[in-house]
Every structure is written in C-alpha cells, then in structure tokens.
Amino acid sequence: MRATIKGKMAAMAALSAAVLALSACGGGNEAASSGSSTSGEVNLIAYSGVWQDQYTAAVIEPFKAKYPDIKINFSSKRSSAEMLSALQGQKSNPATDVAIMDNSVSTTGNKQGLFEKVDEAAVPNLANVPEKFRDKGGFGPVAMVDAVGLLYDTAAFPKAPESWDVLWDPAYAGKINVNAPPSLLGLSLTAITAKMEGEDYTKGTDKAVAKLKEMAPGVQTFAPNPDEYQNVITGQTVLGLGQNARGQFYSDQSNKKMGVTFPKEGTVYQINTVNLVKDAPHSAAAKTFINYALSPEAQSAFAKALFYAPSVTNADLPADVKDRVVPTDGSLNIIPLDVDFLSSARDKWTDTWKREIITK
C-alpha cells in the first residue's frame, strides 16, 4: 500500500513537472514572438514614387547593410490618408510594423489606438530629437521636416513670385494646379488663405472659402496627373502647390525648368513622423529600424537625397544642402498648423472643398 502511494505521488510530481515545463516552453515562445532586434523583418508603410526610391537608397539599403538579418518589406501609398485607411483595416490583426506619414494623420492614428508609444530605452536616438519635434503623448516622433511651397515655371517667372496672390491673378487663369483635400496641400492652402484673410482657421474658414471660390475658376486641375511637379515641368500649368523637398529634387531633374519658393505671407510645415504600430508583429526589429531612421547618418543621407530637413540635432549637412532644406531655426515665416485641430477638421474641410470650391 505504501509503495502504491509513493508511486502515485511520484507520478503526480512528474505530471506537475511536465506541466511546468510545458508552461515555460509556451512562455518562451510568447516572448520569442516579438522577435529579435537584429533579425527577422520589418513591414514598413510609407510614401510611393520618388520618395520611396530615394528613401530606399539613402536609408533602407544602408540599414540592411548594417543589419543584414532584418528584411524590409516596403508597402507604398500615395498619401498619408491612404496609409491611415490601410492601418485602420488591419487594426484587429496588424500586418504593418512601422508607418511614416504626415503628423496630422498620425495624430489621428494615435487617437484611434493604432500606434504604440516609444521611449529612449527602446529607441536611444530619440534623445537627439528636440522637444518641439516629439509627440507630447509619447508617440512616434518627427522623422523629417518639410514645408509647402509655391511651384512655378521659371520661363514664365524669371523671378520667383513673392506672394500667394499670384494664384488669383487672371493672367494665369487656366494655368494653375491645386491638389485638393484630403491632400495636405489643399488643407494647407486653406490655412494659408485664412491667414491672408485675417481669419483664425480653428474658429472658422468662411473668409478663406470665399477667397478660394474666387480662385477656383482659374484652376486647370484639382487632381494633378501624374503629379503637381510634372504638370509644371511639362508646361501643362505654370503655377502649383508642392512640397519644398520634392520641388528641389524635381528642379534639379528638370534642369531648373521648375522652381519652388516660399511666399511672403508665410507657409506651413509638412512634417512626417515615424510610428510604431500597436501590436506590431515584429516589434523588436521595428524599434531597431526606427532607431536607425533617427540616426544622424540616416537623417543626413535622406536630406542629401531628397532635401528633407533632419529632425535630429546631431545631423551634419553640407552647406549646399543646408541652403535648400526647410530651415527649422525660426527664420522661415511659418503659419502654425494645429495638428490636433486639423485631424478632427480634415473630413469637414474636404467636404467643404468638394461642395463649395471645386465647381467643375
């Protein structure tokens, strides 16, 4: 009888040990599911076209050389709005790890619970991002800085236009392209026009809308194809809205056929953030990529490739590049863009443009 009891106790002990071992094994698999910081893959969603080409050459390829065991899968979208829509569709089962998008759109994603907070423990290079380029809630920081500029045909304008008023000049009616909302360019023009009309866009845009309605008949297209830059370069239009970085790039590509300038009334920043997706399938490798994206070498390389201003304080730029990226030292007349407000007003402003401004 005593032997039988001992046998049962031994069996129970063996079973308990097996259960504990199985639990430990399961816990180990769960921990491993977050992946390694130096191996695995990163699913990145960001801009298409020339942005993708230049970012791949300047940042992704050097990253892969430094971390050969991390594969980068690039999913490209034309706009931040398209990226947000894709991430919203994945919310219950994320397939993306990192998103680089406009901060007015990433702010919406933060509010919707699409992104994780990041800190210096996980992303050490965050220490070199100044406070003004950090998210106040601790979400993805600014990765690069640009601003909206006025594109112009250098043959039609030997001297760069000095005022946004040129968009209303009857002499150029039918020769203007304006990318309408939800594009940030159209949203930015709304804020700029409100400033010109002495209006606080966070309280109302009636004056701005009325002014934009006056401009509308002179606009050849509200959906430039293939894009706002090529429309000017090919002579389809002579004026348009664009971003300084791409404007500088395409100016070089076109042998200065197109120029880009900042009118005296001011402009708005176009700022991209780098964001860690909530419950990212490859979180550890994703943090490694974000850290590299904020490194001085990556920031400087992309500034040289596509003229985006670095968001970190320790990036070193050649003088000829520094002169062409957007200044972040306060010397440029910047109209503050309230991203929290804009993230909530985007749909309303887009609808207003469709109903009241775009009339053809």
Rank of each mutant, 00 (worst) to 15 (best):
I5T: 15
N272R: 04
S39I: 07
T154Q: 08
S343N: 13
Q243G: 09
I335C: 10
K348C: 02
P226A: 11
F262S: 02
T352D: 13
G149K: 02
K136W: 04
A223P: 00
L185D: 04
D316R: 08
I290K: 01
T56Y: 10
I192A: 07
K287G: 00
E214I: 11
Q299C: 07
F307H: 07
T205P: 02
Q248M: 07
A298K: 03
L150I: 09
A127V: 15
Y47A: 03
A284R: 05
I192H: 00
A32P: 08
E356S: 12
V277H: 00
E120Q: 14
E265Y: 02
A210Q: 13
G27Y: 15
I176R: 03
F74V: 05
A180E: 05
E356G: 08
F139D: 00
A223T: 15
S106T: 15
T267C: 04
F222S: 01
P318H: 11
E197S: 09
R134Y: 07
Y269S: 11
T205N: 13
T328I: 15
A13S: 10
P336I: 07
F289M: 01
F139H: 11
A286Y: 04
D146N: 13
L317V: 08
P182Y: 02
Q253M: 09
T328E: 06
G28L: 15
K132F: 10
T205G: 04
P336W: 10
D227P: 04
D347R: 10
Q248P: 01
E131I: 09
R246W: 08
G35I: 05
S79A: 13
L185H: 06
D338S: 11
A309I: 03
D97T: 06
L114K: 02
S283W: 00
S16M: 15
P62L: 07
P68E: 05
Y172N: 03
S251W: 03
A95C: 13
A155N: 12
I60V: 14
T202P: 05
L317I: 10
K77M: 12
N29L: 14
P170T: 11
S311P: 02
I271T: 14
P296N: 09
F249K: 02
D320P: 03
K203G: 13
K360T: 12
Y308Q: 12
D252E: 14
A298P: 01
S106L: 05
P62Q: 06
A57Y: 03
G26Y: 15
G240M: 02
L150R: 08
Q243H: 14
F307D: 00
P182L: 09
K207G: 07
T288I: 09
A298Y: 04
G235C: 06
